[in-house]
């Protein structure tokens, strides 16, 4: 064992300090991996989905966002009812063209459920149904996904804790997927060109870079948004989300132009009708045994309002998102297929 000499000590301290200074300096000079071109991880595989669904994440940062097309042989939106979550997911996705429509073998998939707090299990309907998430992991892996990660950025406790309490970790791990705690190091600052409010935001880079992003919110009551659905669930992809609450609707729609899930599945198996988004009382939970599945996040949200006895016009952000061309809030004339997924 060598004794630590003063020289060694100073040298080590020097290296540490230099790295901090260098880091600050580089940031000050604007040398960041972040801005428009996050360098790490696999490059986005641009447009391989384009024929099937024009839904790849926006590459050029333009606001002329692609609207989901209605000209496919598949229904625009599927409502899957039943009592077995896995069957509901499987049959619903199948009707929609199967997971193969949204990904090709070897894809890197991220599933974004709502796992907001660590103190209520799934029964309280504050977090997405674990079996729905588990089923999605299975389906993606069966379709040849390279890896499937599940993540959310909770507000009421640590990620690990929330993953555990929600029961999602157990189902995801059993299905062969992995839970990822969203660490600060992986957030990158992104400019949102054409944004009305949210001009710059720190987003989790893997979510932007994923080949397939599946949005799996749980439908529930929310004081500000009135309902938290697919669009609202995107807030889990950014840091400092408290700031978004000021001029909330515009900011949320701005964010939705940047983070573009190719598939949205709204979990309305158990819905939290009051005291959301945290819940904690079973008397606020209503069992609806429904999943709403669509490549169009706005349409899915729009449909989900009916489960709460509302119309999309009650929820301003759905209308604003439709106005910005992110999807369709008006469901009339769209091909909506309802299935009963009881095995």
């Amino acid at each position: 064992m060598k004794r630590i000499s003063r020289r060694d000590f100073l040298r080590t301290a020097g290296i540490g300090l230099t790295s901090i200074v260098a880091q600050q300096f580089l940031s000050a000079c604007g040398v960041r991996p972040s801005e428009d071109n996050p360098m790490p991880t696999a490059p986005n595989e641009v447009n391989f989905l384009q024929t099937a669904t024009p839904f790849s994440p926006i590459q050029d940062q333009s606001t002329s966002t692609s609207v989901p097309t209605t000209e496919t042989p598949y229904p625009y939106l599927v409502v899957s009812r039943g009592t077995q979550p896995e069957e509901m997911v499987r049959q619903g996705v199948k009707v929609l063209g199967g997971m193969e429509r949204f990904m090709k073998p070897g894809a890197d998939v991220i599933i974004k459920p709502n796992i907001c707090v660590p103190y209520n299990s799934y029964e309280y309907a504050a977090t997405t149904n674990p079996w729905v998430v588990g089923a999605l992991v299975k389906i993606c892996l069966e379709a040849g996904a390279k890896r499937v990660r599940v993540m959310d950025y909770p507000f009421g406790g640590s990620g690990e804790e929330c993953y555990r309490t929600s029961g999602i970790e157990e189902q995801v791990t059993a299905a062969g997927g992995s839970m990822e705690v969203m660490h600060p190091i992986k957030y990158v600052d992104k400019q949102i060109i054409g944004a009305l409010r949210l001009k710059k935001v720190a987003v989790y880079q893997d979510i932007l870079n994923a080949d397939l992003l599946i949005n799996v919110p749980i439908a529930k009551d929310h004081g500000l948004a009135r309902l938290t659905l697919g669009l609202k669930n995107l807030m889990g992809t950014i840091q400092k989300r408290e700031k978004i609450h000021v001029s909330f609707e515009s900011s949320l729609v701005d964010l939705a132009t940047l983070v573009r899930p190719q598939l949205t599945i709204i979990d309305a198996i158990r819905t939290l009708m009051a005291n959301g988004p945290t819940g904690g009382s079973l008397s606020d939970v209503k069992i609806q045994n429904t999943l709403i599945i669509s490549p169009d996040i706005v349409a899915a949200d729009s449909y989900a309002t009916s489960l709460f006895g509302m119309t999309p016009h009650h929820i301003p952000y759905i209308i604003k998102a439709a106005e910005r061309g992110l999807g369709k809030a008006d469901l009339s004339g769209l091909k909506i297929q309802e299935i009963n997924a009881n095995a």
Binding site: V246, S247, N275, P277, T278
Partner: peptide, 21 residues
């Protein structure tokens, strides 16, 4: 922000963990 600036902000209500808020 709500009381003084009349903005929509209910972060405190949203975050409140008490089951009946």
């Amino acid at each position: 922000l709500a009381w003084s600036d009349h903005l929509t902000c209910i972060v405190c209500e949203e975050m409140c963990p008490i089951p009946q808020k």
